[in-house]
Amino acid sequence: MSGLRILVPVKRVIDYAVKPRVNRAQTAVETASVKHSMNPFDELSIEEAVRLRERKTPVEEIVAFSAGPPKSQDILRTAMAMGVDRGIHVVVEEKDALEPLGVAKLLKKVVDEQKTNLVLLGKQSIDDDAGQTGQMLAGLLNWPQATQASKVQIEGDSVTVIKEVDGGVETVKAKLPMVITTDLRLNEPRYASLPNIMKAKKKPLDKKTLKDFGIESQPRLKTIKVTEPPTRKGGVKVDDVDSMISKLKELGAL
């Protein structure tokens, strides 16, 4: 194998620190004039791809990919400022947003086209919290998968991944090509430096459409409504441990 050709899909989502609000018509979460940024798990994927190169693993190319509204190119630039070589942006308007299955189908075509042999995705996006795309892509490609990775080791074409599972960790081993989804403990993403942000502006960014890949945005799921979660009633504050215990007893929790 001549080297890794890494594809890192990234998603533009409402910033994790923003408290999302449901719109009045109860059809969606309000996204207009809300701060957006790169899905936090995707930052981990990029960081990992860049670190592979820094660790002298032969990396031929790191390509970031996003399917989303025109503003998604901002996060592709961020990815490039972190060390990605180039970007591919499939412009999809918000009303035509793809479901995970649609994204996985699109990614399969991109993987074929780019001759990718390693796809690094976040384990979930923090907007729809589905956690499906990586596994779906692996299924469509019939490639090995390792989800919720907290450590990735590549030697030649052999990949060892430590995964976060219920109650601990699990180690699996497979051969490239492979799909890996990243978990929080994998690494600490770097901040893009100003010179790198400037350099990123000159890196190539391909703009494409769904039609270029022969994919249609046909949702399988229909949103019936989006509502606010039931709010909890504010409780009482107590002054000492004894009143805490008696209050908990009163509530039947002890």
């Binding site: 299955l101 499906q132 596994q135 299924g139 469509l140 998968q145």
Partner: peptide, 20 residues
């Protein structure tokens, strides 16, 4: 961890959009 790892792969093979 088991369900999250497995079911989307099954869904993709069956061409179905999973609900998580």
């Amino acid at each position: 961890a088991f369900g999250k790892n497995l079911l989307p792969r099954v869904a993709a093979i069956l061409d179905t959009q999973q609900i998580s």
